[in-house]
Amino acid sequence: MNGYRIPGRRAVEIVKDELLGDGMEGEVYPIADNSAVCAKIYTSPHDDVIDRVAALVGLPPARWDGDHPAHFHVAWPQAPLVDERGRPCGFVMPRIAGLPLEMLGDARGRHQALLEPTWRELLVIAARVAHLFDMLHDVGVVVGDVSLKNVMVTPTGHVTLVDCDTVQFTAPGGRLFRTPKFTPEYAPPEADQLVHRPSTPAQDSFGLAIMICWLLMEGQNPFAGVLTDASLPDDVQQNVMSQNNRLLWPDRFVPMEGELPVEVLPPEILALARRCFAEGHHDPAARPRPGEWVAALNRAQYRLMGCRENPMHFYSASLPSCVWCARIAGGLLDEYPPRSPLVPPGPAAPVPQQPAGVPAQPQPEQPGIGAARVVAIALLLVLVVAIILAVMSG
């Protein structure tokens, strides 16, 4: 044993020679006798971090169930840890399966990450991310550090928020724990004021809108790209501040090779995104809330067209024809190619430094009709017809 334990309970053996992930604040390791959980050990734990963890373990998300037994909506701290001297040093949390959401920006990453790497599945995943934000806001939690790296996705498309010890929340005693950091590429125009005031759900809503556009537009951040005004810097955060957005003013950007038209977004999704980045730029209250995204994305799933040429191609019914086939005809690569039956899904490269390890639940096979059953049914039908004819002739 290496001296770690849960206060008032038992010792915890941490496998220090198997690093699952690391960051500025600490490192994540497996726990020897329980593959369903892991431990985060802080590099330099200070009082605010220790108080934060102690408060987090008592909040509702610590008791949330997932969409199925092996899934968690959040990698929430479950119990604090102390070292051999009894000093707080980290916490125990669920060990999460899957890969970071940022893997889904291109065909190769989608085939590594998902069992069904289609655009229809991306709509489902986007709705699940929005639902996750909606659940957190309902219990007074603000994500704050919105980022594709902080959401994991399983092969079946289920999502989990990681890095949960950085969220903003109010402890039962009334103390506000603010989020200590944010990712500039997903931060709203008021980001420069975040260091001086608490984060808000509207801040999350801005980052969520960027994530949804990114998922549905082949990894294109609507604020990223080279500006036509060469005197301005090509900086995503500065573009957010200046409201330089491809969905609103595409003429401000130099066209990118293979750039998707904004019409690939279903009309209702495009309208929500434009509302967020237009009125919502100056008025945070105008930004669509996560629940609005959930409803719109779910409706969009029922308004899809399938492609006659490729069963992996799905597109919005608002388009006259398959956008993916049109891109192939224009000389671009197929973003949703058929999966080879000889190549199962799974990471071909080392998994990025995030906690991972719980195997995804196998999907039950659908019962089929075997050849023998088909023959039996055919013979039964012949017999029935013969009986009917015999009765009629008699």
Rank of each mutant, 00 (worst) to 15 (best):
V139P: 06
V139T: 13
V141T: 09
V141S: 06
V141C: 08
G144M: 04
D145V: 05
V146Q: 01
S147G: 02
L148F: 06
L148Y: 03
K149Y: 04
K149R: 13
K149P: 00
V151D: 01
V153G: 05
T154M: 04
T154L: 10
T156A: 15
G157S: 01
G157P: 04
H158V: 12
V159N: 03
T160Q: 01
T160V: 05
T160G: 01
L161P: 02
L161M: 10
L161I: 00
L161K: 01
L161A: 03
V162A: 01
C164R: 00
C164M: 04
D165C: 11
D165N: 12
T166I: 07
V167Y: 02
V167A: 06
Q168N: 06
F169N: 01
A171L: 13
P172T: 09
G174L: 09
R175V: 09
R175L: 02
R175A: 10
L176W: 03
L176P: 00
F177A: 05
R178C: 07
T179P: 04
T183Q: 10
P184V: 15
E185A: 14
Y186K: 01
P188M: 12
P189C: 04
E190I: 12
E190R: 15
A191S: 14
D192S: 15
D192Y: 15
Q193P: 00
Q193K: 08
L194T: 11
L194W: 13
L194M: 15
R197W: 02
R197D: 07
P198K: 08
S199I: 04
S199Q: 12
T200N: 10
P201L: 08
P201S: 11
Q203L: 09
Q203V: 14
D204L: 07
S205C: 13
S205M: 08
S205L: 03
G207I: 03
